[in-house]
Nucleic acid binder design. Structure first.
Lengths: 343, 343
DNA sequence: ATCGGATGCGCAAACGTTAGCGCATAGGCT
DNA sequence: AGCCTATGCGCTAACGTTTGCGCATCCGAT
């Protein structure tokens, strides 16, 4: 009944159990151990089984650095994360951690937040030999892009349009915002306001265009445009402006290009004594968990985050295996989630 | 005017510039390069300067894996991150990334979220030879603890009490919630509700106790206790219960042990037609940026996050340098931030 | 009996850095 | 002039894995 986990069962000198420890135990070459452990069929099935058992018994753990040094592959994905003011990035990180782990990869956080990325920081990509890079920041930091390109490190942007030397996976922003527009138009709304981000991200622009195109198709006049930071505060400020409009000029529907901003709008309206579905419809985009809070009850388009991360990792892994693959952009359709805020 | 950044200036064969590339260029031993680059004073100042210049010229980037393999130090900090439902962890991550980078270290995200951590995942700690571990999860995942302890990897818990084989840095929860209690008592509030987390984290318990002790000191009866998940939803549910109380039994102040929960409480009250400072005071704990939103305007105790992360990294680095250092717990005082929600 | 090809594994050279010794050279001291 | 201590580097052996070859052995086919 030796049920103990393989806790240094026979590594007496406190030295790590390595591939040669095993090789000496069992009387085969280290290379055989290495191959057996990764399932190389050139090694007979029974030898592989014996080796697997031995490794288990001795609590063998591969040494990632040694593998990296020898093979050039680190199993690490460099991540540049967007600002904390948008919970979307938080969800994205969590999903990425989970899925990467399932594929045997880990996330190395290179940079997080809004600030510019320093060159020194970007060098970590090289130092740690990341196999690929996941970027969700507003813009592909130039130095990171250069470093990756110069070293053949594949880059995938998530929720951003592709730049030079990068693939990308996004939500179908145009289609999504068109759906929102059509929903509102179908309700008879005709006076629109559009709350956008001042830093014109590709995502924001696409949502803007998709929405406005749908309005144009119906011959509805262009919406009132308000710009602000992509955060609750940005939306809040826009909401205050909207609330301050003379009653006659008030829109009957407002589309904020991100859920956080929409939440800000709602809060601002409320503080001005206006209410989300009653005085005007408010819709957002992203599908944050927060948008479902009863207090917001926000109609939005939910980005298919798990699928997006999955595709992003697919793209990355494909390009790790074959560096010559051309850049690719995939866009996935989101799901319109109709809640109370749209009336 | 050769202003180009050191972009493979002379690495013709696409081979990485290594320490021996440099050593051959300049005619010294590789070991000398290594020592010079890390400022070893045994190398003359002028040689060091020459080498530094050469390295710059050739765009030399150290190979982290090689260093790790040889020296045993990876420059990596393993991170276990709490659930995405509490923005506190997001802020913590951002701060940690920034400060770690400033100290030349990177964050390897081992696990994120509420789910249990798998053994395989924990093994990444060993594989990548992390120098230390930062844990903010609710409880120290047992396997992670075991792995770290067995391999002498220092562990620091943040916002959690220390477990066996770990140091910790927390906010002074008792003092903070006492301050909140005294603030409310000073206003004449006497009927209290306490919204707690059902999973009894050390943090939650301490805040509970600090608050109740202060009440007891004033001879005020024990508060009504409501338990829920540590999220907006948990707080929301508690808020609904409070709102549903007969008017005579309603508290005149509620303390939610975290800001997210307090936000949930406020939203629930509001949906029931009650309002935060008017019908009862609501206070939280953490000092989230979200708490400052005009819509919440939440009185809270702000955890000194930058200082906490700083101390956590201090503890970690000290224990990397000297593994024999005893575990240490430091608690830092937060700052009472009085806003509108407390009336 | 001989040959040809699988099948199964071993050899040894990388990968880039670090660190324990050890060996010169130079200068100051007696 | 000889000895001693710095000062400044070089040698070399790790660190643990991977991988391109290459070499046996064994099987069946000729």
């Amino acid at each position: 009944m030796k049920d103990l986990p393989p806790k240094e069962p026979a590594a007496p000198e406190g030295r790590r159990t390595t591939i040669v420890t095993l090789s000496r135990q069992i009387g085969v070459a280290p290379s055989t151990i290495s191959r057996a452990l990764k399932g190389d069929t050139r090694i007979s099935a029974e030898t592989r089984a014996r080796i697997a058992r031995l490794a288990q018994e001795w609590g063998y753990t591969p040494h990632a650095s040694a593998r990296t040094l020898s093979s050039g592959r680190s199993g690490l994905i460099g991540v540049v994360l967007g600002p904390p003011t948008n919970p979307f990035y938080t969800g994205l990180l969590h999903e990425a951690v989970r899925q990467a782990a399932a594929r045997g990869m880990r996330l190395l956080v290179i940079h997080a937040g809004a600030g510019a990325i320093e060159d020194m920081t970007a060098d970590a990509l090289l130092q740690y030999q990341v196999d690929g890079c996941l970027i969700t920041s507003v813009e592909l930091p130039s130095h990171v892009g250069a470093v990756c390109a110069a070293n053949g490190v594949p880059v995938v942007m998530v929720n951003r349009v592709a730049r030079l030397n990068s693939s990308a996976v996004t939500c179908d922003n145009r289609f999504g915002s068109r759906q929102l527009a059509e929903l509102l138009l179908g309700q008879g709304r005709r006076r629109f306001a559009l709350v956008r981000t001042s830093t014109s991200s590709s995502t924001g622009q696409e949502r803007d265009q998709g929405f406005c195109d749908a309005l144009a198709d119906m011959g509805v006049e262009r919406p009132l445009r308000l710009d602000g930071r992509s955060s609750h505060q940005g939306g809040f400020a826009a909401g205050q402006q909207i609330a301050a409009l003379p009653v006659g000029e008030r829109p009957d529907a407002v589309f904020a290009v991100s859920d956080v901003m929409a939440m800000g709008v709602i809060d601002a309206l409320r503080m001005a004594g206006l209410s989300a579905p009653r005085d005007m419809a408010v819709v957002g985009f992203d599908g944050l968990p927060e948008a479902a809070w009863p207090h917001y009850d926000l109609t939005t388009v939910e980005q298919p985050l798990p699928a997006m991360i999955g595709r992003a990792l697919d793209l990355l892994q494909a390009r790790m295996a074959d560096r010559s693959l051309p850049d690719e952009t995939v866009s996935l359709r989101g799901r319109l989630v109709v809640r109370g805020s749209s009336g």
